[in-house]
Computed example of a mutant assay.
Amino acid sequence: MTGTPTFALPGGFLGVTRREADPAIAIAGIPLDIGTTNRPGARFGPDAIRRASKMLVDGDHPVARRAVTAGLSDVGDFEIALGDIPASLALIERQAAPFRHLITLGGDHSIALPLLRALAKRHGPVGLVHFDAHVDTWPDSFGQPYGHGSCFYHAILEGLVDPRRMIQIGIRSPVQREVMAWTLGQGVTVLSAQDVHEQGVAAVTARIRSVAGDAPAYLTFDIDALDPAFAPGTGTPEIGGLATWQAQALLRGLRGLSFVGMDMVEVAPAYDQAEITVLAAATLVYEYLALLQPEL
């Protein structure tokens, strides 16, 4: 190996520090976690994911067989309105709007709503590939209309996503019967973690592809889709989740879908062990970047 050691690379994702005016792919951090309903701390996720990503730059992607940073700019962190969820959502939407293809490092899952608002103005209602332990279609979060458990309730009502092209993978938390009934009634496809374990990666990949279709789609990945054995550093861990190899294999099977953006959320480094959560998060973003590379 030659060049700068990985641990000494600059602080951008995958060591990228360039900030182009109109990048093909932009990575931004959104250190917002005031929408959490359990353990806080995801505001520290963006920096921790960036640091962990340095592990991934000492060679080409093992499947894509190339570097994945072509056209990539790390544009830093978005501004938020401290302590004010609606104002923060408005700020996030405004800052996300100019980017052609945006990957965001959260932050809690509340950030997905303004990101989808910005995206819908460019593409119309998009498909949604949603990895999570939770459906996030509660109508509110303990009386607060906006929070990390209600982002997709609002996204569906606002017509930002096409629920018939929306699939949730890894769901396994307690959920009220009426919330699940409403979600399914909108046309959303829900696959539990147990479904993934029993059906296998190939079958689940095929289901995701059939639901998402060929039109523009957005990928949203809550790190608690992974089992706490693989991702303890999150605010709302649920046992029985996906293994990192399953999540990685599922993402690798989605090449060719028309993804127009991604977020990685709910990484709370204070609860992590040996940086396994942040490494998993960074690697899954890395896998998404590999999907965007043209085939050799």
Results as ranks from 00 to 15, higher is better:
residue 196 V to Y: 02
residue 11 G to H: 10
residue 247 A to N: 05
residue 69 T to V: 10
residue 93 E to H: 12
residue 277 T to W: 01
residue 39 R to H: 05
residue 215 A to H: 08
residue 51 R to T: 11
residue 144 Q to F: 08
residue 212 A to N: 00
residue 258 S to M: 11
residue 285 V to P: 10
residue 16 V to K: 11
residue 60 D to H: 04
residue 270 A to R: 11
residue 261 G to L: 08
residue 101 H to N: 15
residue 9 L to A: 14
residue 230 F to Q: 06
residue 55 M to S: 14
residue 134 H to E: 01
residue 235 G to K: 00
residue 97 A to N: 09
residue 255 R to E: 13
residue 16 V to L: 13
residue 249 A to G: 06
residue 134 H to F: 01
residue 195 D to V: 10
residue 56 L to Q: 02
residue 172 R to N: 14
residue 177 R to W: 12
residue 31 P to G: 06
residue 220 T to G: 03
residue 274 A to R: 09
residue 237 P to R: 00
residue 194 Q to N: 14
residue 261 G to N: 05
residue 231 A to F: 01
residue 203 A to F: 13
residue 172 R to V: 14
residue 232 P to D: 04
residue 239 I to L: 15
residue 147 G to K: 00
residue 22 D to Y: 12
residue 286 Y to K: 04
residue 99 F to S: 12
residue 133 A to I: 07
residue 182 W to D: 04
residue 71 G to Y: 11
residue 192 S to L: 09
residue 69 T to H: 07
residue 234 T to R: 02
residue 194 Q to F: 13
residue 178 E to V: 12
residue 77 D to K: 07
residue 222 D to G: 07
residue 153 Y to M: 01
residue 54 K to P: 00
residue 276 I to L: 11
residue 146 Y to S: 01
residue 160 L to S: 06
residue 28 A to M: 15
residue 5 P to C: 11
residue 198 E to R: 15
residue 175 V to E: 10
residue 50 R to E: 02
residue 231 A to N: 00
residue 222 D to L: 08
residue 133 A to W: 03
residue 31 P to T: 04
residue 46 P to D: 06
residue 66 R to F: 00
residue 244 T to F: 15
residue 72 L to Y: 11
residue 193 A to P: 10
residue 67 A to R: 14
residue 52 A to C: 03
residue 208 I to V: 15
residue 99 F to A: 11
residue 42 A to R: 07
residue 295 E to A: 15
residue 257 L to A: 11
residue 52 A to Q: 01
residue 234 T to C: 09
residue 117 R to K: 11
residue 247 A to S: 08
residue 2 T to L: 11
residue 115 L to R: 15
residue 1 M to F: 11
residue 143 G to H: 05
residue 211 V to T: 11
residue 262 M to T: 02
residue 16 V to N: 09
residue 277 T to S: 00
residue 30 I to Y: 14
residue 8 A to W: 11
residue 144 Q to K: 10
residue 43 R to S: 13
residue 231 A to R: 00
residue 128 L to E: 02
residue 176 Q to M: 15
residue 89 L to S: 03
residue 77 D to A: 09
residue 272 D to G: 03
residue 63 V to K: 08
residue 27 I to N: 09
residue 156 I to G: 03
residue 292 L to K: 05
residue 270 A to K: 09
residue 65 R to P: 04
residue 239 I to W: 14
residue 263 D to L: 03
residue 47 D to N: 12
residue 10 P to W: 05
residue 235 G to S: 00
residue 250 L to G: 01
residue 254 L to E: 02
residue 282 A to W: 01
residue 68 V to R: 04
residue 73 S to W: 06
residue 13 F to C: 08
residue 241 G to C: 02
residue 98 P to S: 09
residue 124 G to K: 07
residue 289 L to N: 01
residue 41 G to W: 01
residue 179 V to D: 09
residue 45 G to N: 04
residue 216 P to I: 08
residue 107 G to E: 09
residue 257 L to V: 12
residue 210 S to C: 08
residue 244 T to K: 06
residue 159 G to Y: 12
residue 177 R to K: 14
residue 137 T to W: 05
residue 48 A to G: 04
residue 93 E to W: 13
residue 120 A to M: 04
residue 281 A to Q: 03
residue 236 T to S: 12
residue 26 A to I: 06
residue 187 G to N: 00
residue 2 T to N: 10
residue 85 I to G: 02
residue 79 E to F: 12
residue 275 E to A: 05
residue 16 V to Q: 13
residue 124 G to S: 06
residue 127 G to W: 07
residue 57 V to G: 04
residue 286 Y to T: 05
residue 209 R to A: 14
residue 207 R to H: 05
residue 19 R to D: 15
residue 103 I to D: 06
residue 242 L to K: 05
residue 238 E to A: 14
residue 18 R to D: 15
